[in-house]
Simulated assay, not measured.
Amino acid sequence: MQDLSSLRAFAIPGQLSFRAGPGGLVFADIDNPDGSASIALQGAHLTSFRPKAQREPVVWLSEKARFAAGKSIRGGVPVCWPWFGPHASEPTFPAHGFARTVPWEVVDSGSADGATTITLRLVFSDATHAQWPHDTPVELRISVADALDLELTTLNAGEAPVPLGEALHSYFHVGDIAEVELRGLDGCAYLDKTEAFARKQQSGPLRFAAETDRVYVDTRSTCMIDDARLRRRIHIAKQGSASTVVWTPWGQKAAAMGDYTAEGWRSMLCVESANAADNALTLQPGEAHVLAVRYSAEAL
């Protein structure tokens, strides 16, 4: 893992710095005139983002999030890779893959047109190769301004086709989950995990009154979170993603997880840009795939 002294080469005075954070994790902090963000190098896990024009953050992080080597962080934008959900054949392998709990290294940084960028590359090891024997370099490029841009690029550098499932498991900050509407999925088919993956069809905007865990398939649409309490709309635009996952645990499930405050679940909604279920990918030798998202917010 990179130490702070080696990371100085990537620092940008007044915009990008590095620090030792809770649990011994190393963080990159971005702060420019238009936006701010923090990224844990473990997992390339973005833990915060706020445009300077917004009083409230766009990305949600649990007040009880745990920071420890090899452990996932509740909130932010976990990188689910190279599979989504449980592994297809090995139930002992971690759900959503290993990328969110292993070291990544900084390989580039820069500043242009008002945005500050940082690029991280996953560090493979004997432990990861035991779960994923394929030659697939993967990088995440993060760009911070008044909007947040994320680009997850996977290359199949091997000589055989490789299956791939992935998601940017983004937690968005809302005023009250019971007062938001999610638009952009009207008419889409979805798999309902709360009902044994029954296939259903969305009608109108989503409203939330109970645990929701759905994989919307064959959709490349932009989604919008309309937030009556915070009087704003969050735009979730994507490219290279054919699935959208929507999740809120609601009170009983959140209480059982241990890394939520008693009412913390009320202030978050996960809208994940993914390639999962029906839309899992196969990368041919030499093929690269880019999953890209842009998150922005405006007043209602």
Rank of each mutant, 00 (worst) to 15 (best):
Met1Leu: 14
Met1Thr: 12
Asp3Thr: 03
Asp3Gly: 00
Leu4Tyr: 08
Gly14Gln: 14
Gln15Val: 08
Leu16Asp: 11
Leu16Phe: 14
Ser17Gly: 05
Gly23Gln: 13
Gly24Lys: 13
Val26Ala: 12
Ile30Cys: 14
Asp31Pro: 02
Gly35Lys: 05
Thr47Tyr: 12
Thr47Lys: 09
Pro51Asp: 10
Pro51Asn: 10
Glu56Ser: 11
Val58Met: 05
Leu61Asp: 00
Ala69Met: 09
Gly75Glu: 07
Gly76Gln: 12
Gly76Ala: 13
Val77Leu: 13
Pro78Asp: 01
Cys80Asn: 00
Cys80Val: 10
Trp83Met: 02
Gly85Val: 10
Gly85His: 01
Glu90Gly: 00
Glu90His: 10
Thr92Val: 14
Phe93Ile: 05
Phe98Val: 02
Val102Glu: 03
Trp104Met: 02
Asp113Trp: 09
Ala115Ser: 11
Ala115Glu: 14
Thr116Gly: 07
Ile118Ala: 00
Thr119Glu: 06
Leu120Tyr: 03
Leu122Met: 09
Phe124Ala: 09
Ala127Glu: 10
Ala127Ile: 06
Thr128Ala: 01
Thr128Glu: 07
His129Tyr: 11
His129Gly: 01
Ala130Arg: 06
Ala130Phe: 00
His134Phe: 04
Thr136Pro: 00
Pro137Gln: 02
Val138Thr: 08
Leu148Glu: 04
Ala157Leu: 02
Ala157Trp: 01
Pro161Met: 01
Pro161Trp: 01
Glu166Arg: 13
Ala167Thr: 03
His169Trp: 05
Gly175Thr: 07
Asp176Val: 07
Val180Gly: 02
Glu181Arg: 15
Cys188Ile: 02
Thr194Gln: 13
Arg199Pro: 15
Gln201Val: 15
Gln201Thr: 15
Ser203Thr: 15
Leu206Val: 12
Arg214Glu: 01
Val215Leu: 07
Val215Ile: 14
Thr222Ile: 12
Cys223Gln: 03
Arg229Cys: 08
Arg233Met: 10
Arg233Cys: 05
Ile236Phe: 01
Ala237Gln: 08
Gln239Tyr: 03
Thr244Trp: 10
Val246Tyr: 09
Lys253Ala: 07
Ala256Lys: 06
Gly258Asp: 04
Asp259Ser: 10
Glu263Phe: 07
Gly264Gln: 06
Leu269Asn: 03
Asn275Cys: 08
Ala277Met: 14
Asn279Gln: 05
Ala280Thr: 06
Leu281Met: 10
Thr282Gln: 12
Pro285Tyr: 15
Gly286Ile: 05
His289Val: 06
Val290Trp: 03
Ala297Thr: 11
Glu298Pro: 01
